[in-house]
Amino acid sequence: MEPLTNNIEALLATKDYGELTKAERDQVIQSYGQQEYERLRQVALSGQSLADAPTPPPSLKANLMKAFRQKHQRRNIPLHTITMPFWQAAAVAACMVLMGQFVRFGPVYAQTPAMAWEANDSIWFKKVTQIVADTALAVFSADEQLKALKESKSEIAATTTDQLPADKLLPQPVSDTPGWARRSALGTVENAPLLLMMH
């Protein structure tokens, strides 16, 4: 048997002897002869017949798809698949409540009060109102008026926004002052709302 030329090898893989063109037949007859070509063609076809079987079991695909999900989708953990003992869930909830309390009150009281007013009502209860810088609705500079106010506490209640020097009012940086903090700082001095901080 002559070594396979590229052309005849390609013919063996694709064509029966009867399908060959005249030129191809001449080439085959010079190399092998019809009978030998047909036998080798049968061998090549026997190789092609091996392609039908076997097939992998379905479980293989299921395993691999599972492995792929585990590898590439670790971040998407469905919450309903998480199991946890009751005591752990309760402990987590308690920690979250405590953390919430700290966040709720921490920043406001941690700050040094900008000013504090003391006033006594008619039955001698002392009332203290503290205002910190974060909680002021408006800030203005009025040292002289403040001095006057300090000398006479009773005038505080009479102070309203109409009487304030509007040209000296500065815009309050609201971004740092959440609504709940502002409300918590609203106090009253002798039943009058105290809305401003002076400095």
Partner: peptide, 15 residues
């Protein structure tokens, strides 16, 4: 190609 040649030859004998 050489390996294919020997494979076909061997299988031709065996089959």
């Amino acid at each position: 190609k050489s390996r294919l040649h020997y494979s076909l030859k061997k299988l031709n004998e065996l089959l």
